[in-house]
Write a protein that binds this DNA or RNA. Structure first.
Length: 358
DNA sequence: AATGCGGGGAA
DNA sequence: TTCCCAGCATT
């Protein structure tokens, strides 16, 4: 087995990719619109999670014009469960810009791409290279991990200095590549399947020959981990307020976390309060209705990226005229069968499952 | 430069 | 449990 000349890793990488790439829906049929949708969905979200969402989304909204023409509520419904809902709202805003200013087609200059809502450095480079063949390197979590090992870079890879160092060196490498698209996708594919966070498959790696971390036995220690912050825990109570076979939901503000999604009225427990009292108080404060707790339905735990919550659900009955409803946000009285028409956070889906059983 | 943002897969 | 994922917008 002959040693390859040093400095030829980009060609080895792309050769490996062309033999090993996964058959993914946005690779099977590559259009700028499909690349765009896939890249937005893939932000902080794994491929396996994205695939079914992508298929449904492009079937429902086949191009930028149809997306722009849709109601944001329908876009959020298509995004339900995928998380980071600001991505969906920004995508919808960007579709309006593309429909209005670009004739419905994604612009093919990096400057214009970078100006669209939801296009940061990563997505701009990804769409420019994969959709339009422009030589801009992507720098995502995979790339940072691969090169912190390949070049044995100590320190926090997320720091601006190290990111910029990696980006600059990759800009050189991609400039001499015939397919910037394959080069970028190869790096991310390598990070996802070979140069994994734990237990990398160095035996199957096309870059092993020149990998500094492998030669120095450092693959296990790179990239350097930063210490994590403690995650706070919240106690929350919500009320399922029934009226004539329907219960009340309210839509969250578009600028909030989970913006635009629907929920039961409720909120955080205050000092010295029972959870039932919390539910009654929150219902009164949020929607202006006086209610009484009938029973506790269930308690569910849910983990978010930056906190965990224990949510207790109380069935409530009205002790006032429902016309007393006062709420700055949109509200609706719905049945369990109608929940499918609205976008809810994942934790609400757990609650619906319990409500259906009893 | 730091922080907030959801949900899920995998070990 | 814990870690991490094809990051962006805001401050």
């Amino acid at each position: 087995m002959s040693r390859r000349r040093p400095g030829t890793w980009p060609d080895s990488l792309v050769r490996w990719y062309r033999r090993n790439r996964r058959d993914l829906p946005w690779r099977r049929e590559t259009t700028p619109y499909r690349v765009w949708i896939s890249e937005i969905m893939l932000q902080q979200t794994q491929v396996a999670t994205v695939v079914p969402y992508f298929e449904r989304f492009v079937a429902r909204f086949p191009d930028a014009r149809s997306l722009a023409a849709a109601d944001v509520a329908d876009v959020l419904k298509a995004w339900e469960g995928l998380g980071y809902y600001s991505r969906a709202r920004n995508l919808h805003r960007a579709a309006h810009v593309v429909a209005r200013d670009c004739g419905g087609e994604l612009p093919c200059s990096v400057e214009q791409l970078a100006g669209l809502p939801g296009f940061g450095p990563y997505t701009t480079a990804a769409v420019a290279s994969i959709a339009f063949g422009l030589p801009f390197p992507v720098v995502d979590g995979n790339v940072l991990r691969v090169f912190s090992r390949f070049w044995a870079i100590a320190g926090d890879v997320r720091s601006t200095r190290i990111r910029e160092c990696i980006r600059t060196r990759l800009a050189d490498a991609i400039a001499s590549q015939r397919s910037p698209s394959d080069f970028n996708q190869a790096l991310m594919e390598l990070g996802a399947r070979v140069c994994r966070p734990r237990d990398p498959d160095c035996g199957g790696c096309p870059l092993a020959q020149e990998c500094e971390a492998l030669q120095r036995g450092l693959t296990r220690d790179l990239p350097e981990r930063q210490q994590r912050r403690r995650i706070p825990h919240l106690r929350v109570a919500v009320g399922v307020v029934w009226n004539n076979g329907r219960f009340l939901i309210a839509r969250r503000g578009l600028d909030q976390m989970l913006g635009g999604l629907w929920e039961f009225p409720g909120g955080k427990r205050e000092r010295g309060e029972t959870l039932a009292e919390t539910a009654v108080r929150e219902v009164r404060e949020e929607v202006g209705l006086d209610v009484r707790v009938v029973r506790r339905v269930c308690t569910v735990r849910h983990g978010y990226s930056h906190f965990t919550v224990t949510l207790t659900v109380f069935e409530c009955e009205l002790r006032c005229d429902p016309a007393q409803l006062r709420c700055t946000r949109p509200t609706a009285w719905i049945t369990l069968a109608e929940t499918d028409r609205y976008a809810f956070p994942g934790v609400n889906r757990k609650i619906f499952a319990v409500l259906r059983r009893c």
